[in-house]
């Protein structure tokens, strides 16, 4: 579904990532780790088409990223749910409307989705906050709202960039729990994090592979954790 082949990425002269190859298999669970500044966010951006690689090939759902127009990328993003550390919302719309935003922009905000929306908000524990505005949410609530927004289109892949960066351990556990549940439903998950405890906590519940970016390259780390 997402394939990277010999991908390199450089910003203004310096190469941040080089010679990266990865094939995300359906239903897999990956952690992406590495020191901050190693290029985790850049790597994820390559995976959802926000950046074009300086060399190599990125394929989203079987199409080369370079061959895709802006609309093609928009359509591909409906199949990729993204959660950022500093998640952004439309601050003038309620939490419920923000979560339903992907449906609205793809013209699928029909009435029968209303039930799904309620269910989803209940699942992430935000039912009571449905009518609040995003600036009124706590860090943990924002992350869960972002996760709900990322999954409402029932995407095939969920990419999360430091989703637990701003929240306490208990809330991190809860968020991880939601990601694990999604993975059990068959979604492909990739979580970038530098929180090794989170990775250890996940290991007991799910078959997760750990990828590590260091020295501009992607390594499979697994056994040592």
């Amino acid at each position: 579904m997402i394939e990277l082949e010999n991908v390199a990425m450089s910003y203004g002269g310096g190469e941040l990532l080089s010679d990266i190859s990865l094939r995300l298999a359906p239903g897999s669970f990956h952690f992406l780790t590495g020191p901050s500044g190693a290029g985790k966010t850049t790597f994820l951006k390559l995976c959802y088409g926000a950046l074009l690689p300086s060399a190599g090939q990125v394929q989203l759902f079987g199409t080369d990223l370079r061959q895709m127009g802006r609309d093609d990328i928009a359509l591909a993003r409906r199949k990729i749910g993204v959660v950022h550390q500093d998640v952004q919302f439309l601050d003038h719309l309620s939490v419920a409307e923000n979560v339903a935003l992907p449906l609205a922009v793809s013209g699928r905000d029909t009435l029968d989705q209303e039930v799904n929306l309620r269910e989803l908000l209940g699942w992430v524990g935000l039912k009571a906050r449905a009518d609040a505005l995003p600036p009124q949410l706590s860090g943990g609530e924002r992350q869960r709202a972002a996760l709900a927004r990322a999954v409402i289109m029932s995407p095939e892949v969920i990419l999360a960039d430091e989703p637990t960066g701003n929240i306490d351990w208990e809330m991190s556990q809860r968020l991880l729990q939601l990601l694990v549940e999604l993975n059990r439903m068959g979604k492909t998950i990739m979580v970038a994090t530098h929180d090794l405890n989170l990775i250890r906590a996940a290991k007991g519940q799910v078959q997760a592979r750990v990828l590590r970016i260091s020295n501009r390259r992607l390594h499979l780390a697994g056994a040592d954790l």
Partner: peptide
Amino acid sequence: AQVIAVLRLVGARDGY
């Protein structure tokens, strides 16, 4: 800009 970035992220087309 933030509104546009959010809309792009959730898969809105430019035309929309």
